[in-house]
Amino acid sequence: MSDAVVTIRGATKVFDVGADQTRALDGIDLDVGKGAFVSLIGPSGCGKSTLLRLIGDLTQPTAGQVQVNGKSAYQARIDRDYGIVFQSPVLFDWRTVEENVELPLEVGGVDKRKRAQRAQAMLALVELTGFEKRYPWQLSGGMQQRVAIARALSFEPAILLMDEPFGALDEMTRERLNLELLGIWRQTGTTIVFVTHSIPEAVFLSTKVVVMSARPGRIVDVIDVDLPQPRSDLTREDPRYFSFITRVRESLRGRVEGSSLRAAGS
């Protein structure tokens, strides 16, 4: 995990809201190593989603630099280095599951036969073989999110950006998908940057947890989670798992207490 896929130096993002200026991010420095699983965690308004969007070139920093694979974030986007998964699956109603997974390949000009092969492989990866011809609205929320993951991975992006991908799912589905996601991560070796506000989820999944605080958005702690790999349901019973959870919680609390109640509650 030596060579960094993402390098962020002094990234600051200021939003103009009418006459007010909000410092969503203030002087962020962050390295994400190749093959790492990095979680961004913090209270609402800490800029974790903005940081993710900055990496994916969905928004640009007011100051500072974002480099991905030694290129600008813009160039990385043009080179199709990103797979993105949002909290809602954002599937296209008029496309079947298979056609949804093929969409990025279609845009990338991949030929039809190759597209079908990739879609097959990706749907097998997320355990949705047999659902190719279904429409998204015929699937459960968890299945829809798996389709979104298959789609994000279909063109083998160098980095997978996930913005609270399991936030809208029930706890049991969420835990199962956490395990599946780890399996996919191991199989594909993709670098993952994962935004969440669930502490157990962050600890369970990540090799590195980045703790952020709000107003202005800053990184307050970076915790290397060296729980053994591969992780499984047993990991959730490991005493060290709990000590990492405590560690993250204290990191969050230390910064949150000084902040407003609203931030603490979220």
Binding site: G56, D57, L58, R77, I78, D79, R80, Y82, G83, I84, F86, S88, V90, F92, L103, P104, V107, G108, F155
Partner: peptide, 13 residues
Amino acid sequence: DPRALELMRSYAA
């Protein structure tokens, strides 16, 4: 959905 357009953006569409 604006995110659908962002996805297309991320595919460099």
